[in-house]
Design a protein around this nucleic acid. Sequence first.
DNA 1: AAGATATGATAACCAATAGTTATGAAAAAC
DNA 2: GTTTTTCATAACTATTGGTTATCATATCTT
Lengths: 291, 291
Amino acid sequence: MKNYRSTLPPLDYLLFFETVARHKNFTRAAEELNVSQAAVSKRIKFLESWLGVELLTRNGRNVDLTKAGHKLAANASEALEYLALGIGQLRQGSHDKLSLASNIAVSQFWLTPQVNEYLLSHDAVPVTVTASNKESDILNQEHDVVVYYGSDIPSGWEGVVLFEEIWQPLAAPGLIAQAPDFSASTLLDFEKLALKWINWPDFIEQSGHAELSAAQRVNLGSYGSSLDAAIRGKGIALGSADVLEFEIEAGRLTPLEGYKLNTGRTYFAIWRTGTLSQRTRDLLRDVGIDL
Amino acid sequence: MKNYRSTLPPLDYLLFFETVARHKNFTRAAEELNVSQAAVSKRIKFLESWLGVELLTRNGRNVDLTKAGHKLAANASEALEYLALGIGQLRQGSHDKLSLASNIAVSQFWLTPQVNEYLLSHDAVPVTVTASNKESDILNQEHDVVVYYGSDIPSGWEGVVLFEEIWQPLAAPGLIAQAPDFSASTLLDFEKLALKWINWPDFIEQSGHAELSAAQRVNLGSYGSSLDAAIRGKGIALGSADVLEFEIEAGRLTPLEGYKLNTGRTYFAIWRTGTLSQRTRDLLRDVGIDL
DNA sequence: AAGATATGATAACCAATAGTTATGAAAAAC
DNA sequence: GTTTTTCATAACTATTGGTTATCATATCTT
């Protein structure tokens, strides 16, 4: 009966040791392993104790491998290489794809720009983005990860904060140059499809800027249309600088300073509880979304 | 740069998975791994999540490997076999030996019998036993493990309880048959080389059996001599049934019931703090001493 | 030669995971 | 149809992973 658990040390010890053996430096190994130098030192000490064999000689700050250490390093290195190859092939062959979802504005202005850039890279796997303003369209099991807007993560889901919403007016740079105050400008409004959305009346009330009421307000229907019109210099729209970071960077929109409203709502990246694989996490990082 | 920590899952997961794959049964795998079935289930679940790949199909109580699972099982099995071989050779080639120490009586009656039996087995490594009644001779760094007698483990050492001392009279079975009470027997005494030793006067005082004072008492010098004389039917000696288990089993000595004294002292197996290797632990188990 | 720097070892402590027990669901065995 | 066995999971405890701080020691710099 092959009982590896009793004949092998804790296997992560071997991985730590292989890294130390390769660098001949605990501090460098710790950096690669993303742990402290003390953690590496402890692991190697335990491994030597478990084996009853000295693997490294220490001479002040110099470290070298003993004969046994050389043998174990070679053995571990080959085994780890073999495992990494096998696991790499396994993941590669698992018909990788990434399925994302968000509301329309987030998709149009934040997700899709990043996904498009990613898809142009080599080694890209297929990515689909579902855009809908109906939560039932996006909060389902079809998607690996959802960019979710709200005050809390829904029940049965888990995730991380991407950014907290700071709602503010934005306009095309040219418009700001020719009409520096609101009274001569048009406030570009939209239909609220959810109570949690904040349109111009909500913004004016909650931010306390009563002087904004004097401006002309026009309702363009969808929120995306209000942003499109703002980009084309037709007026001032509301938005989140984080979601619109690419439009701002491109110089198509400029935030109007001094009018910020912390809405208390958040953009989360969420997934069904317990379903996020390391592979999905890695792919998201490649797209530009660090969890 | 080979950063295996980011490209490989926690490696014990693979070991757990290999065991499940081999048994095709979580419960059987758990038994081999010495963990609960729930622990195995959790691990496999995490591994599948980490990989983003289903490794096993579950159908009620039936488990089978997916195609990916077969591949990973083969990959892991080969790597683990390779590692176990390398580590086995490393330990084999580390000039194994075991160095033990104890006081003379423990060595003569308890340790050496077990060591001798072990040395006759194949795969035995050299074992030395140092016997001395001077603590300075045995409490030093030369020895892997020391059988220590006292109320506590000395500072700088750690260890486990072997047995707690119950001190009692023992004699040859023939002597007990012909002289059923003490008055016609000789109490075989010895020189106390340490305050913590308990001779006949101590025993009589602490056990409350004042009637034992009527018996003739003779001092034979060493404690071992008192036991030797008892074995040869010359009288009644004091001793610990645990230490003398082999003499009792062989029928050379028999405890006299009803005269037990719990001395409050203990036989420990001890070693310098932090120095006990798994290999030493394994060798001791082979000798018959489970820590 | 003296001081500064880098690295390893370890103590004390906190965080995260390993592992357990109990229990429910579902298929196999009887 | 009932019992048994096995897997999944919740809730909890135990153990290990990992950190920070600090000391010892060799190397490097001045």
